[in-house]
Design a protein around this nucleic acid. Sequence first.
RNA 1: GCCCCCAUCGUCUAGUGGCCUAGGACAUAGCCCUCUCACGGCUAAGACAGGGGUUCGAGUCCCCUUGGGGGUACCA
Length: 521
Amino acid sequence: MGPVRTRFAPSPTGYLHIGGVRTALFNWLLARQAGGQFILRIDDTDSERNRAEALQPILDGFRWLGIDWDEGPEVNGPCAPYFQSQRNERYVQAAMILLEKGHAYPCYRLPAELQKEREAAEKAKKPYVHRGEHRQTSPEECLRLYREKKAALRLKVPDEGVISISDRIRGVVEWQASLIGDPIILRPDGRALYNFATVIDDSEMKITHVVRAAEHLSNTPVQALVYRALGAEMPEFAHVPVVNEPNSKKKLSKRDMKKFLTPEVRAKLMAVGWTAEAIEIRDDLNPATVAFYKELGYLPSGLVNYLGRLGWSLDDKTEIIPLADMIHNFSLERVNNSSASFDPDKLFWVAGEYMKNLPLSEKVEKVIPFLQRAGLLNAQPSEAERKKVQTIVAACGDRLKLFSDVLSYGTPFFLKDPLYETKALSKRVAKEGVPDLLREFSAKLRQLPDYSVPTLEQALRDFCQEKQINTGLVIHALRVATTGIEVGPGVFDCLHILGREESIRRIDLALELATPPAPGQ
RNA sequence: GCCCCCAUCGUCUAGUGGCCUAGGACAUAGCCCUCUCACGGCUAAGACAGGGGUUCGAGUCCCCUUGGGGGUACCA
């Protein structure tokens, strides 16, 4: 066997599905570990859609995640083309060889007739195994018949015997050949069927490891028979367990993804600037797709780590596995054989762990687009503005788990006036004695020698000490007065970011709002 | 119906016959730290689907049942 070559063969559906990425990732890891090649092949045999448009989101998704391909769309390679729709003549050619060699035969039965037979068998509680009448016809005669009148071409399945494959994840799996009906490999119009096309492609592309979703396990005996008939070398098979819906044993389906677009999900998307209409049009924006996480500002490295750990583990305790370690340590033998539920909470946590380790400068770069989209920053931020963003991001610290979190923590620093939460204002500012304290402290702010975080903190502590009051009282009041909200970076960071004049202006503004003029005045 | 696959805390997992009184992580709850939130620290609760075997000994091996999933296509 030559160098390790793995592949992922998505249909151009217009989005990159989470479950698919996991399978692709395992393939990619295997290839990278062995210094082999990872191939992207597009299964577009039945696609009537605009291919370029439906393919782009998939390529974008992989690129965003850093999963690169050595051969495939846009990069090409020695086995081009990498679109099944452009490879049909190869399938026809291969089918003709099987016909000549007596491994295939034409079948003139109509689908409707077969359907009836199937139903009859079902009623009789007997397995339905289709065997066409031309199974015994000589290859020469079959070829003559086929030339005379095109028909569906069926593969001859042995009458008896066991088809056995050794799956790298499942172990040995066997099927009775007598229970497998002769499958169609070519339609009367010459279009190949999946089970046939896949084998031709995998064989021609010298794929050494077919790592795919477990739902393909049942296709494998037929494919094994095609390899055998072709006289081609069989690749290693590894069927990875499917990814289930959160908290469910149901497969995370590509169909019916709309149900993941819950009100909460919609709210998250709208918080980062998507309108309800845009979400409707971009029907791929939901938690089952990669694009969703990109839009919400998840770190791609976090998503890759999470997906890699879903169904595979390094040992009994490691959760955070840098990509290089994952490449180095990945093995099919440690892939679980039971299906796994996708857990958005854990993904969120992993993404946060990666964010903690991201250099500040990178956070700043990645956060800027979210601020721009929200209209808080213009398209060409000045050096001063970038500096301000940096200060804000630094002040956010570990609170920033997603890039979009900059909106919940940073917005008050970009608005002209804070958006005051009424409740917070009445709870923290419009409170017995607090307005006077704020006024006094505000006056102190004016006199500070500088406006740094330590100076501010010292000033406040001294002030509270002097007044014999709890520091929290003033701190909470200050935070609400200057940012409008109760949660966020440390209050001294907030004051520092705003600067002296703006801090004081906002305190005055809050006091105005919180203390309505006394009646009669 | 028939064929194939799967089965440890709510979820992801460790476990390859004695190291298991079943370990870790997310989520949950409580406490601590603390200017809020987040981070961090500590603690709690929480699982071997059921039944038979095999064995001195079973989460681990075998069988059955149950439950999930996939296939049974001129879908992929």
